[in-house]
Simulated assay, not measured.
Amino acid sequence: MSGENDTSLEGFILLGLADTMELQIILFLLFFVIYALTVLGNVGMILLIGTDSRLHTPMYFFLANLSFVDVCYSSAITPKMLADLLSETKTISFTGCFLQLYFFIALATTECILFGLMAYDLMAYDRYVAICNPLHYPLVMNHKICVQMVVACWITGVPVETGQTYQIFSLPFCGSNQINHFFCDIPPLLKLACGDTFLNEMLVFTVAVLFVTIPFLLILGSYIKIISTILRLPSATGRTKAFSTCSSHITVVVMFFGSAIITYLRPKSKHSSRADKFLSLFYTIVTPMFNPMIYTLRNKDAMMALRKLVDPDLAEVGRLTDCATQAPPFIHF
Protein backbone atom coordinates (compact mmCIF):
# COMPACT_ATOMS: atom_id res chain seq x y z
CA MET A 1 0.00 0.00 0.00
CA SER A 2 1.13 3.56 -0.58
CA GLY A 3 2.98 5.19 2.26
CA GLU A 4 0.85 8.31 1.81
CA ASN A 5 -2.33 6.55 2.88
CA ASP A 6 -3.17 8.29 6.16
CA THR A 7 -6.37 6.23 6.43
CA SER A 8 -4.42 2.96 6.41
CA LEU A 9 -3.98 3.31 10.17
CA GLU A 10 -7.44 4.43 11.22
CA GLY A 11 -9.58 2.97 8.46
CA PHE A 12 -12.74 4.53 7.05
CA ILE A 13 -16.08 5.73 8.37
CA LEU A 14 -19.17 4.58 6.47
CA LEU A 15 -21.85 7.26 6.57
CA GLY A 16 -24.56 4.70 5.74
CA LEU A 17 -28.13 5.18 4.58
CA ALA A 18 -29.76 7.21 7.37
CA ASP A 19 -28.93 10.04 9.76
CA THR A 20 -31.30 9.22 12.64
CA MET A 21 -31.36 6.14 14.86
CA GLU A 22 -35.13 5.75 14.40
CA LEU A 23 -34.77 5.45 10.62
CA GLN A 24 -31.75 3.18 11.03
CA ILE A 25 -33.81 0.76 13.13
CA ILE A 26 -36.55 0.68 10.50
CA LEU A 27 -33.99 0.05 7.76
CA PHE A 28 -32.34 -2.63 9.89
CA LEU A 29 -35.61 -4.55 10.21
CA LEU A 30 -36.32 -4.20 6.49
CA PHE A 31 -32.89 -5.32 5.31
CA PHE A 32 -32.68 -8.07 7.93
CA VAL A 33 -35.86 -9.59 6.49
CA ILE A 34 -34.51 -9.20 2.95
CA TYR A 35 -31.20 -10.83 3.87
CA ALA A 36 -32.96 -13.69 5.69
CA LEU A 37 -35.15 -14.31 2.62
CA THR A 38 -32.08 -14.15 0.40
CA VAL A 39 -30.16 -16.76 2.38
CA LEU A 40 -33.14 -19.06 2.98
CA GLY A 41 -34.36 -18.80 -0.60
CA ASN A 42 -31.01 -19.42 -2.25
CA VAL A 43 -29.90 -22.16 0.15
CA GLY A 44 -33.32 -23.76 -0.26
CA MET A 45 -32.92 -23.62 -4.04
CA ILE A 46 -29.54 -25.35 -3.81
CA LEU A 47 -30.92 -28.10 -1.54
CA LEU A 48 -34.00 -28.57 -3.71
CA ILE A 49 -31.90 -29.00 -6.86
CA GLY A 50 -29.47 -31.30 -5.07
CA THR A 51 -32.12 -33.62 -3.64
CA ASP A 52 -34.44 -33.99 -6.65
CA SER A 53 -33.00 -36.06 -9.48
CA ARG A 54 -35.44 -34.53 -11.98
CA LEU A 55 -33.66 -31.21 -11.50
CA HIS A 56 -30.21 -32.60 -12.35
CA THR A 57 -30.18 -30.85 -15.71
CA PRO A 58 -27.91 -28.13 -17.15
CA MET A 59 -30.41 -25.35 -16.45
CA TYR A 60 -30.74 -26.21 -12.76
CA PHE A 61 -27.00 -26.76 -12.43
CA PHE A 62 -26.55 -23.12 -13.47
CA LEU A 63 -29.36 -22.02 -11.14
CA ALA A 64 -27.74 -23.79 -8.18
CA ASN A 65 -24.47 -22.01 -8.87
CA LEU A 66 -26.30 -18.69 -9.23
CA SER A 67 -27.90 -19.26 -5.82
CA PHE A 68 -24.50 -20.00 -4.27
CA VAL A 69 -23.03 -16.82 -5.77
CA ASP A 70 -26.02 -14.82 -4.52
CA VAL A 71 -25.52 -16.03 -0.94
CA CYS A 72 -21.81 -15.15 -0.99
CA TYR A 73 -22.41 -11.91 -2.87
CA SER A 74 -25.06 -10.66 -0.47
CA SER A 75 -23.05 -11.80 2.56
CA ALA A 76 -20.11 -9.65 1.48
CA ILE A 77 -22.21 -6.51 1.98
CA THR A 78 -25.35 -6.99 4.07
CA PRO A 79 -24.06 -8.26 7.48
CA LYS A 80 -21.70 -5.29 7.82
CA MET A 81 -24.47 -2.91 6.76
CA LEU A 82 -26.86 -4.40 9.33
CA ALA A 83 -24.27 -4.06 12.09
CA ASP A 84 -23.65 -0.43 11.12
CA LEU A 85 -27.37 0.36 11.23
CA LEU A 86 -27.37 -0.51 14.94
CA SER A 87 -24.08 1.23 15.68
CA GLU A 88 -23.24 4.87 16.19
CA THR A 89 -19.67 4.41 14.95
CA LYS A 90 -19.74 2.89 11.47
CA THR A 91 -16.02 2.25 11.08
CA ILE A 92 -14.27 -0.24 8.84
CA SER A 93 -10.56 -0.94 8.81
CA PHE A 94 -8.43 -0.29 5.76
CA THR A 95 -7.90 -4.03 5.31
CA GLY A 96 -11.60 -4.74 5.90
CA CYS A 97 -12.56 -2.21 3.24
CA PHE A 98 -10.04 -3.73 0.82
CA LEU A 99 -11.43 -7.24 1.37
CA GLN A 100 -15.05 -6.12 1.14
CA LEU A 101 -14.44 -4.36 -2.18
CA TYR A 102 -12.45 -7.28 -3.56
CA PHE A 103 -15.07 -9.91 -2.72
CA PHE A 104 -17.86 -7.62 -3.88
CA ILE A 105 -16.46 -6.97 -7.35
CA ALA A 106 -15.16 -10.54 -7.76
CA LEU A 107 -18.55 -12.06 -6.91
CA ALA A 108 -20.42 -9.40 -8.89
CA THR A 109 -18.27 -10.21 -11.93
CA THR A 110 -19.00 -13.92 -11.49
CA GLU A 111 -22.72 -13.20 -11.25
CA CYS A 112 -22.69 -11.04 -14.39
CA ILE A 113 -20.90 -13.73 -16.42
CA LEU A 114 -23.15 -16.45 -15.01
CA PHE A 115 -26.25 -14.43 -15.90
CA GLY A 116 -24.89 -14.05 -19.42
CA LEU A 117 -24.17 -17.78 -19.77
CA MET A 118 -27.57 -18.71 -18.38
CA ALA A 119 -29.38 -16.38 -20.73
CA TYR A 120 -27.40 -17.08 -23.88
CA ASP A 121 -26.25 -20.68 -23.52
CA LEU A 122 -29.06 -21.97 -21.34
CA MET A 123 -32.27 -19.98 -21.65
CA ALA A 124 -31.79 -19.23 -25.34
CA TYR A 125 -29.39 -21.76 -26.88
CA ASP A 126 -30.37 -24.55 -24.50
CA ARG A 127 -34.09 -24.07 -25.11
CA TYR A 128 -33.60 -23.37 -28.80
CA VAL A 129 -31.66 -26.62 -29.20
CA ALA A 130 -34.18 -28.50 -27.05
CA ILE A 131 -37.01 -27.40 -29.33
CA CYS A 132 -35.43 -27.24 -32.79
CA ASN A 133 -32.71 -29.90 -32.48
CA PRO A 134 -33.64 -32.06 -29.49
CA LEU A 135 -31.36 -34.94 -30.51
CA HIS A 136 -28.32 -32.64 -30.34
CA TYR A 137 -29.17 -31.31 -26.89
CA PRO A 138 -27.50 -34.04 -24.73
CA LEU A 139 -24.31 -33.71 -26.79
CA VAL A 140 -24.12 -29.92 -26.70
CA MET A 141 -25.14 -29.33 -23.06
CA ASN A 142 -23.45 -32.18 -21.19
CA HIS A 143 -22.29 -32.06 -17.57
CA LYS A 144 -18.61 -31.58 -18.42
CA ILE A 145 -19.32 -28.50 -20.54
CA CYS A 146 -21.55 -27.04 -17.83
CA VAL A 147 -18.85 -27.51 -15.19
CA GLN A 148 -16.28 -25.88 -17.47
CA MET A 149 -18.61 -22.91 -17.99
CA VAL A 150 -19.09 -22.42 -14.25
CA VAL A 151 -15.36 -22.72 -13.53
CA ALA A 152 -14.74 -20.13 -16.25
CA CYS A 153 -17.25 -17.82 -14.54
CA TRP A 154 -15.31 -18.01 -11.27
CA ILE A 155 -11.78 -17.59 -12.61
CA THR A 156 -12.25 -15.24 -15.58
CA GLY A 157 -12.34 -12.01 -13.64
CA VAL A 158 -10.01 -12.90 -10.76
CA PRO A 159 -6.77 -11.40 -12.20
CA VAL A 160 -8.54 -8.27 -13.39
CA GLU A 161 -10.47 -7.69 -10.18
CA THR A 162 -7.42 -8.37 -8.01
CA GLY A 163 -5.43 -5.80 -9.95
CA GLN A 164 -8.27 -3.29 -9.90
CA THR A 165 -8.78 -3.54 -6.14
CA TYR A 166 -5.06 -3.25 -5.43
CA GLN A 167 -4.77 -0.27 -7.78
CA ILE A 168 -7.60 1.58 -6.03
CA PHE A 169 -6.17 1.03 -2.57
CA SER A 170 -2.71 2.06 -3.74
CA LEU A 171 -4.02 5.58 -4.30
CA PRO A 172 -3.13 8.22 -1.67
CA PHE A 173 -6.09 8.78 0.70
CA CYS A 174 -4.77 11.87 2.44
CA GLY A 175 -8.02 13.76 3.00
CA SER A 176 -11.30 12.77 4.61
CA ASN A 177 -11.80 9.16 5.60
CA GLN A 178 -15.63 9.34 5.46
CA ILE A 179 -17.16 7.14 2.75
CA ASN A 180 -20.57 8.48 1.82
CA HIS A 181 -22.00 5.02 1.24
CA PHE A 182 -23.09 1.93 3.16
CA PHE A 183 -20.20 -0.22 1.89
CA CYS A 184 -16.80 0.17 0.25
CA ASP A 185 -17.82 0.75 -3.36
CA ILE A 186 -15.58 2.09 -6.13
CA PRO A 187 -17.13 5.53 -6.88
CA PRO A 188 -17.12 6.85 -3.27
CA LEU A 189 -13.58 5.51 -2.72
CA LEU A 190 -12.30 7.31 -5.80
CA LYS A 191 -13.85 10.52 -4.49
CA LEU A 192 -11.66 10.26 -1.38
CA ALA A 193 -8.42 9.79 -3.32
CA CYS A 194 -6.32 12.94 -3.58
CA GLY A 195 -4.13 11.68 -6.43
CA ASP A 196 -4.78 11.34 -10.15
CA THR A 197 -7.58 8.79 -10.60
CA PHE A 198 -7.88 8.95 -14.40
CA LEU A 199 -6.32 5.51 -14.99
CA ASN A 200 -8.51 4.01 -12.25
CA GLU A 201 -11.62 5.48 -13.82
CA MET A 202 -10.64 4.15 -17.25
CA LEU A 203 -10.06 0.69 -15.76
CA VAL A 204 -13.45 0.79 -14.01
CA PHE A 205 -15.07 1.81 -17.30
CA THR A 206 -13.31 -0.98 -19.23
CA VAL A 207 -14.19 -3.65 -16.67
CA ALA A 208 -17.81 -2.47 -16.56
CA VAL A 209 -18.08 -2.73 -20.35
CA LEU A 210 -16.48 -6.19 -20.46
CA PHE A 211 -18.22 -7.81 -17.49
CA VAL A 212 -21.49 -5.88 -17.23
CA THR A 213 -22.45 -4.39 -20.59
CA ILE A 214 -21.44 -7.30 -22.83
CA PRO A 215 -23.27 -9.97 -20.73
CA PHE A 216 -26.30 -7.65 -20.67
CA LEU A 217 -26.24 -7.41 -24.48
CA LEU A 218 -25.97 -11.20 -24.73
CA ILE A 219 -29.01 -11.49 -22.48
CA LEU A 220 -30.96 -9.06 -24.65
CA GLY A 221 -29.97 -11.04 -27.74
CA SER A 222 -31.13 -14.28 -26.11
CA TYR A 223 -34.51 -12.79 -25.24
CA ILE A 224 -34.95 -11.61 -28.81
CA LYS A 225 -34.56 -15.26 -29.87
CA ILE A 226 -36.88 -16.38 -27.10
CA ILE A 227 -39.58 -13.87 -28.02
CA SER A 228 -39.35 -14.78 -31.71
CA THR A 229 -39.87 -18.43 -30.75
CA ILE A 230 -42.78 -17.55 -28.46
CA LEU A 231 -44.51 -15.68 -31.27
CA ARG A 232 -44.47 -18.88 -33.33
CA LEU A 233 -46.22 -20.93 -30.65
CA PRO A 234 -49.62 -22.08 -31.97
CA SER A 235 -51.37 -21.79 -28.60
CA ALA A 236 -52.46 -18.36 -27.34
CA THR A 237 -52.37 -19.73 -23.78
CA GLY A 238 -48.83 -20.96 -24.31
CA ARG A 239 -47.75 -17.55 -25.61
CA THR A 240 -49.33 -15.81 -22.61
CA LYS A 241 -47.63 -18.10 -20.10
CA ALA A 242 -44.30 -17.78 -21.89
CA PHE A 243 -44.47 -13.97 -21.98
CA SER A 244 -45.43 -13.94 -18.31
CA THR A 245 -42.39 -16.03 -17.41
CA CYS A 246 -40.06 -13.98 -19.61
CA SER A 247 -41.30 -10.69 -18.17
CA SER A 248 -40.38 -11.71 -14.64
CA HIS A 249 -36.89 -12.79 -15.77
CA ILE A 250 -36.36 -9.61 -17.77
CA THR A 251 -37.44 -7.46 -14.82
CA VAL A 252 -34.78 -8.94 -12.53
CA VAL A 253 -32.10 -8.78 -15.23
CA VAL A 254 -32.83 -5.12 -16.02
CA MET A 255 -32.92 -4.30 -12.31
CA PHE A 256 -29.49 -5.88 -11.75
CA PHE A 257 -27.64 -4.79 -14.89
CA GLY A 258 -29.42 -1.47 -15.37
CA SER A 259 -28.57 -0.16 -11.91
CA ALA A 260 -24.95 -1.34 -12.25
CA ILE A 261 -24.51 0.19 -15.71
CA ILE A 262 -25.87 3.55 -14.56
CA THR A 263 -23.61 3.52 -11.50
CA TYR A 264 -20.33 2.59 -13.16
CA LEU A 265 -20.64 3.94 -16.70
CA ARG A 266 -22.02 7.41 -16.21
CA PRO A 267 -19.51 10.29 -16.08
CA LYS A 268 -17.87 11.16 -12.75
CA SER A 269 -19.42 14.65 -12.87
CA LYS A 270 -22.90 13.08 -12.91
CA HIS A 271 -22.35 10.97 -9.79
CA SER A 272 -24.59 11.68 -6.82
CA SER A 273 -24.00 10.00 -3.45
CA ARG A 274 -27.74 9.70 -2.82
CA ALA A 275 -28.40 8.21 -6.27
CA ASP A 276 -25.41 5.85 -6.02
CA LYS A 277 -26.61 4.47 -2.69
CA PHE A 278 -30.15 4.00 -4.00
CA LEU A 279 -29.02 2.26 -7.20
CA SER A 280 -26.55 0.02 -5.38
CA LEU A 281 -29.37 -1.38 -3.25
CA PHE A 282 -30.76 -3.06 -6.38
CA TYR A 283 -27.60 -4.86 -7.48
CA THR A 284 -26.33 -5.73 -3.99
CA ILE A 285 -29.41 -6.55 -1.88
CA VAL A 286 -32.67 -6.69 -3.85
CA THR A 287 -31.71 -8.86 -6.83
CA PRO A 288 -30.19 -11.74 -4.79
CA MET A 289 -33.50 -11.96 -2.93
CA PHE A 290 -35.63 -12.05 -6.08
CA ASN A 291 -33.59 -14.62 -8.02
CA PRO A 292 -34.76 -17.74 -6.10
CA MET A 293 -38.35 -16.45 -6.09
CA ILE A 294 -38.38 -15.88 -9.85
CA TYR A 295 -36.69 -19.17 -10.73
CA THR A 296 -38.75 -21.24 -8.26
CA LEU A 297 -42.24 -19.76 -8.02
CA ARG A 298 -42.38 -19.15 -11.79
CA ASN A 299 -40.86 -22.52 -12.63
CA LYS A 300 -43.08 -25.55 -13.12
CA ASP A 301 -40.43 -28.22 -12.52
CA ALA A 302 -39.11 -26.52 -9.39
CA MET A 303 -42.61 -26.14 -7.97
CA MET A 304 -43.32 -29.82 -8.60
CA ALA A 305 -40.09 -30.73 -6.80
CA LEU A 306 -41.06 -28.44 -3.91
CA ARG A 307 -44.54 -29.99 -3.70
CA LYS A 308 -42.96 -33.44 -3.70
CA LEU A 309 -40.66 -32.43 -0.86
CA VAL A 310 -43.53 -31.02 1.21
CA ASP A 311 -46.24 -33.56 0.35
CA PRO A 312 -45.52 -36.49 -2.03
CA ASP A 313 -49.24 -37.23 -2.52
CA LEU A 314 -50.01 -33.61 -3.42
CA ALA A 315 -47.07 -33.59 -5.82
CA GLU A 316 -48.50 -36.61 -7.67
CA VAL A 317 -51.87 -34.89 -8.08
CA GLY A 318 -50.09 -31.78 -9.39
CA ARG A 319 -48.07 -33.88 -11.82
CA LEU A 320 -51.20 -35.51 -13.27
CA THR A 321 -52.89 -32.11 -13.59
CA ASP A 322 -49.85 -30.65 -15.36
CA CYS A 323 -49.75 -33.59 -17.79
CA ALA A 324 -53.39 -33.01 -18.68
CA THR A 325 -52.82 -29.33 -19.45
CA GLN A 326 -49.19 -29.33 -20.51
CA ALA A 327 -48.06 -26.38 -22.60
CA PRO A 328 -45.06 -26.40 -24.94
CA PRO A 329 -41.80 -27.15 -23.07
CA PHE A 330 -40.30 -23.79 -24.00
CA ILE A 331 -42.36 -21.88 -21.43
CA HIS A 332 -41.13 -23.95 -18.48
CA PHE A 333 -37.93 -22.02 -17.79
Results as ranks from 00 to 15, higher is better:
V151F: 10
D313I: 12
V209C: 11
D19I: 00
L37E: 06
M1S: 03
I34V: 14
I26N: 00
A18Q: 15
T240Q: 14
A236G: 03
N177C: 06
L47V: 13
V33S: 06
M293C: 12
A327I: 14
P292W: 13
G116P: 02
V33W: 05
T284Y: 04
V160A: 13
I179P: 14
N291F: 08
T237K: 14
R127I: 01
S75E: 01
R266H: 05
P312F: 11
F330L: 15
F68A: 15
I226D: 12
D196G: 04
F104C: 12
A130R: 11
K80V: 05
R54W: 03
D311Y: 10
R274S: 13
F115D: 01
L217E: 01
I179D: 11
S228Y: 04
D52Q: 14
L23A: 12
N299H: 13
D70F: 04
C97G: 13
P312E: 07
S280N: 11
G11D: 02
L203Q: 14
S170F: 02
M255C: 09
D126R: 04
V253E: 07
L17M: 14
L210S: 14
K225M: 13
E4N: 08
D311E: 03
S272N: 05
S176L: 10
F205H: 09
C132H: 09
F290M: 15
M21Q: 13
R274T: 12
I105R: 03
